[in-house]
């Protein structure tokens, strides 16, 4: 486990394979809890905690879980951690617990967590699994914060509850309403796709240039030989 390997895992979880913006997983909490930046951070951290803990435990147990019933076992492990997180939030962050409401217990059916358990933790040792869980969790949290920033700023004129756009800003309430959640996420994913297309084009161009150079070089070499 090298340092650059760890950095690569974090890069993959947060940017290249962002669970929300690239893999398009976990849409329900993404749309529902991004009405304010504070809620988004709370939801993201709760999911990150569950994701990291369940990845560690599943990785530790990966040799003992029978293949046929693995999904059921994963779900039981995940829901155990979700219950723990729910009780902790109820005890120490009651306001946030009230705001997120139903979506705390619904972390159980968040497909990001099951996807990381199935695709990564059930096949890899403990340390990489823990880092994978943490990286995906941070990727999830950062996507939520980006979406929530747009929605809170446009819909309420605030960021984390602080006045940003001034008192005279006419709140575009639609961004706080459900319709705004769909629209904001739609435009953000379109932006991500645009950047991705551009990056892909550049890559293609670079490859094409390199290929052409190589061809020219070999052709020149053949000419010299002739």
């Amino acid at each position: 486990m090298t340092l650059s390997g760890i950095a690569k895992q974090f890069r993959s979880g947060i940017l290249d394979n962002n669970p929300v913006l690239i893999q398009l997983l976990g849409m329900c909490p993404t749309l529902a809890t991004t009405t304010s930046v504070a809620n988004a951070i709370g939801m993201g951290l709760a999911a990150t905690a569950v994701l990291t803990c369940s990845n560690i435990l599943i990785s530790l147990l990966r040799k003992f879980i029978p293949k046929q019933v693995r999904i059921a076992v994963f779900i039981v492990i995940i829901s155990g951690f979700v219950t723990a997180v729910e009780l902790l939030m109820k005890a120490y962050f009651f306001e946030l617990y009230g705001a997120l409401g139903l979506f705390i217990p619904l972390i159980v059916v968040n497909c990001i967590i099951l996807a990381r358990a199935e695709a990564f933790a059930s096949k890899n040792p403990v340390l990489p699994s823990a880092i994978d869980g943490l990286a995906s969790g941070i990727g999830f949290t950062s996507a939520l914060v980006v979406i929530a920033s747009v929605r809170e700023l446009l819909g309420n004129g605030t960021f984390l509850g602080l006045e940003v756009l001034g008192k005279n800003y006419p709140d575009a309430v639609v961004f706080i309403l459900p319709a705004g959640a769909f629209l904001t996420l739609g435009f953000i994913v379109a932006l991500v796709q645009m950047l991705k297309n551009k990056a892909d084009n550049k890559k293609c161009e670079k490859e094409a240039v390199a290929e052409a150079l190589e061809k020219a070089a070999t052709a020149a070499g053949e000419e010299v030989q002739a």
Partner: peptide
């Protein structure tokens, strides 16, 4: 539609309009 909107983004925007 513009290439960047094809697929998932335009689906979400349509859902947003229906939500309205």
């Amino acid at each position: 539609m513009p290439r960047a909107f094809r697929g998932f983004p335009i689906t979400l925007i349509a859902a947003g309009l229906l939500a309205m």
